[in-house]
Design a protein around this nucleic acid. Structure first.
Lengths: 340, 340
DNA sequence: CCTTAAAATGTAAACGTTTACATAAAAAGC
DNA sequence: GCTTTTTATGTAAACGTTTACATTTTAAGG
């Protein structure tokens, strides 16, 4: 493997000059520049990133941790993140967790061991456990949580997200304003604080409207199609069948839509369906899905800016930064027909 | 930042012993092990990955390059890849290309500069251009192409994929066997060799069946929803409206389905729709989508195994490794009604 | 053309590991 | 208990950069 030394020798300069040519070209004279460039092309030299990062003490890398590639919701967030990353010269690496659940301590370790300069945790990434107390003192680490609501004991991680409880409550109130009172709710999973919050918002709205939530109206959808389909079947077979179903995300709403139609019922005439996220498929579903939109790109940008501040060593606090959500009404919801 | 030196000092041993404790614990005596472990916990030491990788000359990292997180097709492939990665102790980093198109030379460079030990390129990653000839000699680099069909001049990269031409031809023949002769085709984009191949298969089938392909029956869908919707509208307004539309991937088929229904036409009664990939949404669409399934997980596994062989320095040739595809018939296609 | 200031280049140390080799300690053989 | 073998530990070099500092070259000022 050709190193900077050989380039230097061939160009007849010192290795320092070669290094400068690569990192601060304007510090080297035109004539030398040419000599060095020729030597580089001739040898096919490429700087060893491993050595460079080691020497610099930072990698310029930011991890984005997410449960699964192939989840349409993250697209927008990633857009925002990558835009800022480009601007600030960071490289983004996505780490898919899939099944294996890493703990907050694992992430903490990635920073300590210099694998990355910072980490962004996207929704439902792990059953969070508090990180190890390090003897070095727990000064702020460049780790930030995006989209996900966190449990209180982890509140010392900064985060950026919408107000899931409020958004969910509003959406439920919309359903109520349409005349619905029998409303089913499909949440994600118990490890997803985010969908738990959405459930909380749902329940709060129901309570304030003095509407009872029957046993079996709130079911787990596992955050995926199959889970949602099973959950929907349960709701359809419920003795008091809901006239509206609120799904904690759009992916699940897709499954719900399918099951309702498979049961020869119509959406929204027989049952209204409400989703969450406003993924790109929402508007082309049949019928187009009413859902809560998150400003995904904005979330990504803000997350990234805040994280970079932390990387620079500035204090970014541990507050939650709330961005606005928006209810997008399409055609999967309609006023309750009094066709009793 | 606490380094191995401080641990050594605290434990009263040499840094070599600490290093050995971390990498080959069985080489150190029980008593020493304990001392070192205590020192590690006490100092909160974590090995500096940057230094370690630098010293070892390899990072243990494999890049998977893909156009967009949020594309449901890649899920299965990633599954396969990550499974093998775990087995072989590699870490997978996903790099999203989004808009910026990297050239094959950029990838080549990532290897030379030791950013990664190997690279997997997933479908439609870049408008490939041949890589720079390096003076070191172009001995095989650990770069492999997965899913994507490559242009001839790039055939020196090994790859793993289905036979897109054959698969597409078969699917078209299926449509023909149903009695269709007016068939529209929505391809992805001209930079995606993969969808170009699918178009080739389509045309070949039509030609063999002696069916003309009218001007305007083959349109670009941009590999996304919006593009496919526009393309579909063009097809619907065509003077000779197709009775079947074949989309080069399922994502586009989703858009097509939507547009057809928006135009108050029925699928499959008025128009049959055929997709490609068999993403997880295919079966819950309305109607469930007939499509060509790829053994995504298997592709991932094979790609990874072959890549790792290359990383170990073994010769893996530059052949295409073909895996079998399968037509999955659902309800978006039906025999042509002779209701003329 | 000489002096001084500015710009360009060179020298050498440092970053935190791993590892070949040398040495010391422990175990085994008699 | 002494020699030999095995096992455990220590010493020190090396990996390829970057960068503070020293030195040389060039430009500027008179």
């Amino acid at each position: 493997m050709v190193s900077i030394k050989e380039v230097a020798k061939l160009a007849g300069v010192s290795i320092a000059t070669v290094s400068r040519y690569i990192n601060n070209p304007d510090q080297v004279k035109d004539a030398t520049r040419e000599k060095v460039q020729t030597a580089i092309t001739q040898t096919g030299y490429a700087p060893n990133t491993l050595a460079r990062n080691f020497r610099r003490g930072k990698s310029g890398i930011i991890f984005v941790v997410l449960p699964s590639v192939g989840d349409p919701f993250f697209e927008g967030v990633m857009h925002g993140i990558m835009q800022v990353a480009e601007e600030l010269h960071y490289t983004i690496f996505i780490r898919e967790t899939q099944f294996n659940t890493l703990t907050a301590d694992d992430y903490s370790n990635m920073i300590f061991s210099k694998q990355a300069d910072g980490i962004i945790l996207l929704a439902s990434v792990c059953p969070f456990t508090a990180p190890l107390e390090r003897p070095g003192g727990n000064k702020q680490q460049p780790i930030i949580i995006s989209c996900e609501s966190v449990t209180p004991e982890l509140s010392h991680f900064p985060s950026v997200r919408i107000d899931n409880i409020a958004a969910s409550k509003e959406a439920t109130e919309y359903l109520i304003s349409l005349g619905h009172s029998n409303i089913g709710f499909i949440y994600g999973s118990h490890v997803s604080t985010l969908t738990l919050d959405r459930e909380r918002g749902f329940r709060r709205a129901m309570k304030e409207a003095k509407m009872p939530v029957a046993d079996g109206w709130v079911v787990e959808g596992g955050l995926n199609l199959d889970g949602a389909r099973k959950a929907t079947r349960k709701l359809l077979n419920h003795p008091q069948r809901p006239t509206a179903i609120f799904c904690a995300n759009d992916e699940m709403a897709m499954g719900t839509l399918h099951e309702i139609k498979s049961a020869k019922l119509r959406v929204p005439e027989d049952i209204s369906v409400l989703g969450f996220d406003d993924i790109r498929y929402a508007e082309i579903l049949d019928p187009p899905l009413t859902t809560v939109a998150q400003p995904a790109e904005e979330i990504g940008e803000r997350t990234m800016h805040r994280l970079c501040k932390a990387i620079e060593g500035r204090d970014i606090g541990d507050e939650v930064e709330i961005v606005p959500h928006k209810l997008v009404v399409r055609r999967s919801t309609s006023p309750l027909k009094k066709s009793k």
